[in-house]
Computed example of a mutant assay.
Amino acid sequence: MRSPMPRLDRATRAFWRVKGRPVDLAGRERWLAAPMHDGPLVGDGWLADAAASYGGTVRESEPGAGLLADMAALDGPGFRASALRPEVRAFYEHTSGWRMEAWTQWNPVFQPGGELISRYFGRRVQQLALPTRPLDVALGMDSRVATIVDAAGRQRAAGWMRTLRSTGEYVYSGCYSTRVLPGSRQPSVHVAFPLQSGNVQVFLRPTVLAGGALGLTSPAGPFGRDGAYVVVEESGRTHAARAPIHETFRVYVDPEGVLRTDHVLRLWSATAVRLHYKLTPVTGG
């Protein structure tokens, strides 16, 4: 008997196609152009095609590689990288030099659904497999950064692959860069999670919080503003829709000098899961 999973994937794409609107990724909605994948198993298989779109290459295992080459790329009317704690800035600019430990706490109402999504989708396609049990992350996460550079050698984006140290399974595989949304003068952190014939994208608004902490938010709002989007490609046409996923991150240094992150993911207005990360330098950044 054939596996129902491909049918499930097609049904999911059909749902977002109906919910969304047609978009032109080469024109008016170019701000939504981001890596997709051509097969059901994602992992890091999208990196080469993403680099090719910039006419460049992927650089693996570079010492000190970061999600952003320079946090000042986010400078704008509502943000100045120079106001951040040096540790916060070092993490984003030299991510590969940091070790990550993680803890999760699910809302009991959402935990069963999160487990189903992780089991029947995330782990199968090796993408967006959010841990649903505390012991899943007991041994921590491995973090790997691959920079995507153009023909001139400039970093245009970075792939951040996070896997469970206990099993090697992918938790996330995202493409990180900065992007300015239509009608805005404030750059946002742009994260795209490639999927087969589509992707999930999050535009995060940066702010400097008390004590030089970094705040990142993907709020609710109209199409074309910061927030989460689902993009699907089918029969030569592309559709995009806002998703009711809202995230907040607070990256800060605790009183003992340890870099930490509080991450809250909400569906509509309800908190679905809280994550906490402890970040420690392994190479001095």
Rank of each mutant, 00 (worst) to 15 (best):
R2E: 12
R2Y: 07
P6D: 12
L8T: 12
A11G: 10
R17V: 02
R17C: 02
K19V: 13
D24C: 06
A26W: 06
M36S: 11
P40T: 05
G43Y: 00
D44E: 14
T57Q: 11
V58H: 04
G64C: 05
A65V: 04
G66Q: 09
L68W: 07
F79I: 10
A81N: 07
S82Y: 08
A83N: 11
R85H: 15
R85F: 08
V88P: 01
T95I: 02
Q105Y: 08
N107V: 01
G113W: 11
G113V: 05
Y120K: 11
G122I: 04
Q127R: 06
Q127A: 15
P131L: 03
R133C: 00
M141A: 10
R154T: 10
A158F: 11
T167A: 06
Y172H: 13
S177H: 09
G183K: 07
S188H: 15
Q196H: 15
S197M: 12
G198E: 03
V202H: 05
P206N: 05
A210N: 08
A210E: 14
L214E: 06
T217S: 14
D226A: 14
Y229M: 09
S235K: 13
G236T: 06
T238N: 03
P244V: 05
R250W: 05
V251D: 09
Y252F: 15
V253A: 10
P255H: 08
L259T: 01
T261E: 13
Y277G: 01
V282R: 11
G284C: 06
